[in-house]
Every structure is written in C-alpha cells, then in structure tokens.
Simulated scan of single mutants.
Amino acid sequence: MSRRKIDKLQSMKPLFYENRPKEMYIQLKNQTEPKVNSKVLKAALIRRGSEAIRRMFKLKECEPYFNILYMKGYIGDEDHERLKIQKKLQELELTQLAMEAESFKKGWAQTFFPVCQETTMNEALRRRIKSIDDRKDQHSKQWSVTDI
C-alpha cells in the first residue's frame, strides 16, 4: 500500500466514537498488579463483544442508506470509503473477539457471541425503557395541575 494512501486512510474520521469497552478490556488484560480476576476479564470481553455487535448492527442498518445517498451523489467517495473501511474493521474486531474467547476456554466462541448479542439487546431495551420513563416524567410535569 502506498504511503499516500496510508496517510489518507489515517486522516479519515471514523464513523464511530472511541471504543471504550475495548480500551477497558485491553487495560485490564495488561494489568499485572494487582492481577485481574478471570471473571472480570470475561465480563469485560463480553462488554467489548456487545459493543462490536452493536456497531455491526448499526453498519448493516445504515449501509443501504449510505449506498442510496452515494448513488444519488449526496455523499462523496470518501464517506463511502469510510463505510467500507469501518465494516472491515468491525469484521476484524469480531475475529479478534473469537480468538480472545477461545484463549479463555476452548469452544467458548460458540456461546460467546450469543451472550454478547443478548447483552446488546438487553442494553437497547434498557435505554428504551429509560427514555419512556424520562418522557413520562417530563409530560407529567408539563401537564400537572398547579394550585389555583
């Protein structure tokens, strides 16, 4: 790959913000004093996997819209290229996660991804319930009758 192309790829803004669960997992894994419990590492790996699956869902959800916008000329080549690069990065992340899961226990990757997917869905449901509760509180304040 040419130096110019590498510089261009590095200068592109990512589609997603930083991946905090991934950073946290790597920090915990590299921590030597005090030694991190394996259950904590597994939980951090599941959080990392959950974030990777959430991002993959978002990419799959948005891809048709990106393609339509690109075909109609509303977004440029750079944005379309960013989508393709992000998809490849997420596929690499999932591969790394499978290897990490296998390093904990042989065959864990088979059950690891369903657990991560369930975690992702539970978090999404939790966010929706919280937003409904927030809206309910907001509307009840707005429509409450004050003393006359």
Rank of each mutant, 00 (worst) to 15 (best):
F66A: 01
L125G: 11
S38C: 05
L69R: 08
Q31I: 01
D134Y: 02
N19A: 01
E18H: 12
T95N: 09
Q27E: 05
D133H: 08
I129K: 01
M24S: 10
T120W: 12
Q31C: 06
T120H: 13
E51D: 11
Y17R: 14
T95K: 11
E91N: 06
E81Y: 04
S38M: 11
P21L: 05
T111W: 01
L97T: 05
G107M: 04
L83K: 07
L97F: 06
R47N: 14
Q27K: 08
D137E: 08
E81V: 07
Y25K: 01
D7G: 10
I129C: 03
S131R: 09
R4W: 10
R48F: 11
F57D: 15
I68Q: 15
I68S: 12
K72L: 14
Q90W: 04
S140P: 00
N67F: 13
V36M: 10
D137F: 02
I53D: 10
N19S: 13
E100K: 03
L89Y: 08
Q96R: 10
H139T: 02
R135E: 06
D147E: 06
L9W: 09
K130P: 01
K42E: 06
R127I: 05
T32A: 07
Y25A: 01
M1D: 10
D133K: 09
L94A: 05
Q86A: 15
K87A: 01
L69N: 08
F66S: 04
I132A: 03
I132C: 00
S38Q: 05
S103M: 09
Q86Y: 02
N122Y: 09
K72M: 12
Q90A: 09
T119Y: 15
L9A: 13
L69E: 13
D137C: 00
M56V: 12
I129L: 04
K22I: 03
K13Q: 15
K5S: 08
L45S: 04
K60H: 14
K60W: 10
S11E: 11
L83F: 06
P34A: 06
E91W: 01
T120F: 12
H139C: 02
K88G: 11
K106S: 11
K136M: 07
Q86T: 15
N30V: 02
M24H: 12
M12C: 11
V115C: 03
V36W: 00
T146Y: 05
K5T: 12
S103P: 01
Y25C: 01
H80C: 04
E23C: 07
S144C: 08
A109G: 02
D133S: 09
I68H: 10
F104G: 10
A124G: 02
M121D: 09
M121C: 01
K87W: 03
S2E: 09
L125Q: 15
Y70W: 12
K130I: 05
W143E: 06
I6R: 14
E51V: 12
R3E: 14
I53E: 13
Y70Q: 07
K106D: 08
K60G: 14
F113Y: 03
E78G: 07
Q90N: 13
Y25N: 00
S2Q: 11
M71Y: 14
